[in-house]
Amino acid sequence: MYDIEFAESVRQHLRSLSPREIAIIIDAIEEQLVYDPLTQTRNRKPLRPNPIAPWELRIGSLRVFYDVIVDESNVVRILAVGKKQGNRLFIGGQEVKLK
């Protein structure tokens, strides 16, 4: 089992989302990332090297970017939360490129 930690910046990212979207994200994190967050699935995948995070969890148009620390503490660190609109990604209301 993994503990979930949120980066300080995630609070700001969540402010750009609706309360319903925030609830959906929290539920998905608890369901998908507490057990075996390093297993690739249809909605969970490793990303190519980028400045945001090594892993992505997709929940419809919502995105959760995270890293996993595997040691005696086993922690999933949520680094960013955003929303896809078409082929554009917005984190905290700002468009972000993953390249």
Rank of each mutant, 00 (worst) to 15 (best):
P51W: 04
I4D: 02
F90N: 03
D71C: 05
P19E: 06
P51G: 06
V34M: 12
A23C: 12
I29V: 13
D71Y: 08
V10F: 05
P46F: 15
D27I: 10
L62K: 06
I52L: 15
R44M: 10
G60I: 15
F65K: 01
V68Y: 09
P49L: 09
S9W: 04
I29R: 00
K45A: 13
K45H: 14
V70N: 07
E30D: 09
R20N: 06
G92H: 08
V10L: 04
R63E: 02
K99F: 13
Q12V: 14
Q85V: 09
G93W: 14
R63H: 11
E5C: 13
P37M: 05
G60Y: 09
A23G: 13
I24M: 03
I25N: 00
G92E: 03
I59Q: 14
L79F: 07
A7N: 13
V76G: 03
L79A: 06
I22A: 02
Q94C: 04
W55D: 05
V76C: 06
V68A: 12
E72N: 11
E5Q: 15
T41P: 04
Q12C: 08
N74R: 12
E21N: 10
E8I: 09
K97A: 10
V81G: 02
S61T: 14
V76K: 01
L47F: 12
R15K: 15
K99D: 09
V70H: 09
R63G: 04
L89I: 09
N74F: 13
L17V: 05
F6N: 03
Q32G: 02
E72C: 07
N43S: 14
I22D: 02
Y35S: 10
N43F: 15
A53Y: 13
V81P: 00
L98W: 08
V68S: 05
R42E: 12
L62G: 05
V10C: 01
E72S: 14
K99R: 12
T39H: 14
N50C: 11
V64G: 00
N87G: 11
E21S: 10
L17R: 03
A7T: 09
N74T: 08
V10Q: 01
Y2T: 10
E21C: 05
Y66C: 06
L14N: 05
K97N: 06
E31P: 01
N87L: 13
G86I: 11
Q32E: 13
Q94M: 11
G82V: 04
V81N: 02
K97C: 04
L14S: 03
I22G: 01
F65R: 01
I78R: 00
F90R: 08
I26A: 05
